[in-house]
Computed example of a mutant assay.
Amino acid sequence: MNNQLVSICIPTYNGAKFLQESLDSVNAQSYKNIEVIISDDNSTDKTLEICTKFKENTQFPVSIYTHQPQGIGANWNHCIEKANGVYIKFLFQDDILYDTCIEEMVEIYKKYPEIGLVASKRDFIIDINMKSEQTEIWIKKYKDLQRDYELSDNSMYYLTNTIFGEESFLDTHRNKIGEPSCVMFRKDITKSVGLFDIKLKQILDYEYWYRILKNKPVIVINKPLVAFRIHENQATNINKTTEINDYNIYHTILHKEYYRYLHDSLKKSLDNEFSKRNILKKYVFKKYKSLKAKIEKWLR
């Protein structure tokens, strides 16, 4: 009970540049009852070579799986499905766990077994090619994701689904918890909330955290236990420069799944938004029917 297995899940794809540093941080963990689950989406660089060498030189179980690419969410889910641990601890191929990260997160679960997820603050590692005024602005905006909330004590935030009811819930930043490398949760929670939504590309992490938070409290440890790397090839930056963008459906998810929890002003705003959408849909459908009738008449 006091030394339960933690599965460190590492979804990979062409991550050779920073992967060794991430794996070294796994080796340095003070908590020793761990396994590593690596799910690779057909990397073409030296990712699998690095992973294989890592497996050969560790004292804990390391499983390496190849995965047919179906999007990042599918690879995350594949990691979870292969995991044997009581807890799932994500580590992305370019991030780093601090030495006591897993130990401190497991301790939180011992003290607060009712929670659905534990997270921590994070530091930033800025790749030299990303050092710019724009990056500094981003960090200033997103560094403290819990700034709207009060500390339960000096060591943590204890968040419940009441945060959905705050008027500021949609202000500034959407993710109130953190990136996947910052969190740990019990594997068995997937039985009640499911897995990551593979249709989503950008918001699938905090959409999942909120699914958990809707049912169980979340604790955020008030100190960085991971380092999140900002570099030009990370998925977030790539998605921003392509047509992959699902931020525009975030309000649809809130309206469908969280409406009853939201502040009245946010409900009103969403109602107005969806009312306009419905009017537009009816207009487009009416035009479609009219055009279809004209075409059918012309073809007779």
Rank of each mutant, 00 (worst) to 15 (best):
M156S: 08
L204F: 15
S155A: 11
K191D: 14
I177L: 10
G194F: 04
M156V: 03
E167I: 05
S155D: 15
K187T: 09
R174Y: 10
G178Y: 04
K199Q: 13
N175P: 11
F164I: 11
Y157T: 13
T162Q: 13
D188I: 07
E179R: 01
F196N: 01
Y157D: 12
K191F: 09
M156H: 15
Y158W: 06
I177T: 09
Y206D: 10
S155G: 12
V193E: 05
C182Q: 10
N175W: 10
I198A: 01
T172I: 12
I198M: 04
E167M: 02
L195K: 08
T190V: 14
D188T: 09
I198F: 02
Y206H: 14
I177A: 01
E179G: 05
L170P: 02
L170W: 08
L200W: 09
L204P: 06
I163S: 07
I189F: 06
L159I: 13
L204Y: 14
H173C: 13
S192D: 14
G178H: 04
I189V: 13
E166C: 00
K176P: 12
D205V: 09
K191P: 02
Y157A: 04
S168E: 09
I177S: 02
T172H: 08
F169Q: 03
F185V: 10
T162H: 10
R174Q: 06
T172D: 12
K201T: 11
D188L: 05
P180S: 00
K199Y: 08
E207Y: 14
F169A: 00
Y157H: 15
S192W: 04
T160H: 09
D197I: 06
T162F: 03
R186S: 10
S181K: 00
Y158D: 03
G194E: 06
S192H: 08
E167S: 09
V183F: 03
G194Q: 06
T162D: 15
T162C: 03
T172W: 07
F164E: 07
T160G: 12
T172M: 06
V183H: 01
L200T: 08
T162L: 08
S192T: 14
I198D: 04
M184I: 05
L170T: 05
K187G: 07
C182D: 13
Y157R: 05
Y157M: 12
F169D: 07
